[in-house]
């Protein structure tokens, strides 16, 4: 079912030349390649401002062995391991099937080397994708991922090399698994980032005390959900202290499950807000959050949601 009616213009905003009908961005790894949730009656991609496609590498990846997910207190740990069909397949077979009139589609790119990042960026640069999100913070792969994100020099190098090879908006997904996220934000901005995603999942594990084995086959995974919200909120606040000097928007994310959470992230400095784990709980949550955001804005006599960004008393 496609809804003709788009969300209110009170929550509409523009960043990097793109219009976001809602501040909600569906996060990479949670919503497949953009059309998986359209199986659900009542769901529409038009209800969100953007969709980050599943993490894509240069070549196809099988991902980690099962068990890949585990529920924890108010959260979940996942170790999918970047299962994806490879950049060429995504560009040739998946992008043509997406309806770009409904929302913005953002590719999420992962590599095990600078060369791999650059090669994928070049491929997507020639596609109709709206923006690129560079993942330097995946906690579930053996090479690259979070190791790159925690190394400021490597961060600079990846971002600057990607920047040289694309004119598309470049968003860098930062890791919470580092001591100074502000420094990381600064390096990304200096190297040419247009936006920041804050935060990726937090490295975590679970143990089965009966078998005395790690629950996940990969041993470690990424913790998401409401359990990480206070951490994510602080990281957004810290990154915003840097990004606001350059007018670089942040996609705040980490445990948002309702409009109150979304407002908190926006007040901490996020321009857009990411939803992932919440979709597993309620696939129809986005229009509800949109409606409640509009009510909040109207009640507080604010013109547009942009006026709330970083607007802490």
């Amino acid at each position: 079912m496609v809804k003709d009616e788009k969300p209110s213009n009170k929550i509409r905003s523009n960043y990097f030349g793109l219009t976001f009908n809602s501040p909600i961005i569906l996060l990479s790894g949670c919503v497949g390649f953009g059309d998986e949730y359209t199986r659900v009656d009542g769901y529409s991609n038009s209800d969100v401002g953007g969709i980050c496609l599943k993490g894509t590498t240069l070549d196809e990846r099988l991902g980690n062995n099962a068990q890949r997910i585990y529920e924890t207190s108010d959260g979940m740990i996942n170790a999918i391991g970047l299962q994806n069909p490879g950049a060429d397949y995504v560009i040739d077979n998946i992008l043509p099937s997406l309806n770009f009139n409904e929302t913005n589609f953002i590719a999420n790119i992962s590599g095990a080397s600078v060369d791999e990042y650059v090669a994928i960026v070049k491929k997507f640069d020639n596609s109709n994708i709206n923006a690129l999100e560079i993942n330097i913070s995946c906690p579930n792969v053996k090479e690259g991922g979070v190791h790159f994100g925690n190394d400021y020099e490597m961060t600079s190098k990846i971002v600057s090399e990607c920047r040289k090879n694309t004119k598309k908006p470049l968003i860098i997904k930062l890791s919470p698994n580092q001591s100074n996220i502000g420094m990381s934000a600064q390096k990304c901005i200096d190297a040419g980032a247009d936006g920041l995603s804050v935060i990726n999942t937090i490295s975590a594990m679970s143990i089965d005390i009966k078998s005395r084995k790690p629950v996940l086959d990969n041993i470690n995974g990424g913790l998401s959900g409401p359990a990480i919200k206070p951490i994510a909120l602080l990281k957004v606040f810290e990154a915003y202290q840097i990004s606001k000097k350059y007018n670089i928007p942040i996609i705040g994310q980490g445990g948002i499950i309702n409009y109150k959470d979304a407002i908190e992230f926006i007040l901490a400095g996020a321009s857009l807000v990411g939803l992932g784990t919440a979709m597993f709980y309620d696939p129809l949550i986005c229009p509800k959050i949109n409606d409640e955001l509009v009510k909040y804005i109207e009640f507080n006599e604010i013109k547009n949601i942009k006026d709330l960004i970083g607007n802490l008393n």
Partner: peptide, 26 residues
Amino acid sequence: EEHMACAVGGCAGCIVKIKDNNKIVS
């Protein structure tokens, strides 16, 4: 049976390895 998160194909949390033309796919 497998542990699941989204159940609509969005998260790839619940996989099984399948033989497909001499190749293993998830």
